[in-house]
């Protein structure tokens, strides 16, 4: 049964269609949860809870309401709520203590400069490290900046949708995204100068 839209199919046959919703949105919602929580295990639980909540809510909605739903924004909103509740419960874990390049690259974290210029990390490695840096720094941002930033630039949603997910006027959402960018730039430049200092010291 392939109807005109996922919303219409959900309205007509929730149990028969919900699995499709899960497969269609699991990467996005898990990705969003991961950027919000920073820890894979937490992200999986948040995404799982969000889907379960979505299903239970849809069960109570009349068909007309489901058809009229802005599904993507609604789902992101649920993830955000679940994640926020979690932060509130265990505040300790909101800020990642990982620094540098994430666990996977830990072993070869080159805080020491290579003796031989030939052994300098290649361009690709640099780029990967820069990416890992960004992800880590995003995680360290306060939640009020993290959510708008991730929605707008990682998930690539239009500003209007970001605003509706955050339940803010577009103008407010826009300035929050802007502040988030500035906060990220600030922490990026801080982390970079810290790295330079490390380089200086070891020389």
């Amino acid at each position: 049964m392939l109807g005109e839209s996922l919303e219409a199919d959900l309205a007509a046959d929730l149990d028969g269609t919900f699995e499709r919703l899960v497969f269609e949105y699991q990467d996005r919602l898990y990705g969003f949860a991961l950027r919000l929580c920073g820890v894979r295990e937490d992200a999986e639980e948040v995404a799982q809870d969000a889907f379960v909540r979505a299903y239970r809510a849809l069960r109570t909605y009349p068909a007309a309401r489901i058809r009229a739903l802005a599904l993507r924004a609604w789902l992101y909103q649920i993830v955000l709520n679940v994640a926020r509740n979690r932060f509130r419960r265990k505040r300790v874990r909101t800020v990642s203590i990982e620094n540098g390049f994430g666990r996977r690259d830990e072993a070869r974290r080159p805080l020491d400069p290579p003796d031989d210029p030939e052994e300098r990390p290649d361009r690709q490695f640099e780029r990967r490290r820069a990416r890992a840096d960004v992800a880590t720094l995003v995680r360290a941002l306060p939640e009020r900046y993290r959510a708008p930033l991730v929605l707008r630039y990682v998930e690539g949603l239009p500003l209007e949708e970001v605003a509706s997910i955050l339940k803010q006027p577009v103008g407010t959402a826009k300035s929050n995204v802007h502040r988030a960018v500035n906060a990220l730039r600030l922490s990026l430049s801080r982390s970079r100068s810290a790295r330079f200092r490390a380089l200086e010291v070891s020389r």
Partner: peptide, 30 residues
């Protein structure tokens, strides 16, 4: 801003773990 936006847009794609969908469907009885 553009530089930051690009850097964020280039973050690696995240794929949901394979255990996610089955866990969800089991929990809601589907």
């Amino acid at each position: 801003t553009l530089g930051v936006a690009r850097a964020l847009g280039r973050l690696p794609e995240v794929r949901a773990p394979r255990s996610l969908a089955p866990a969800v469907l089991r929990r809601i009885g589907l």
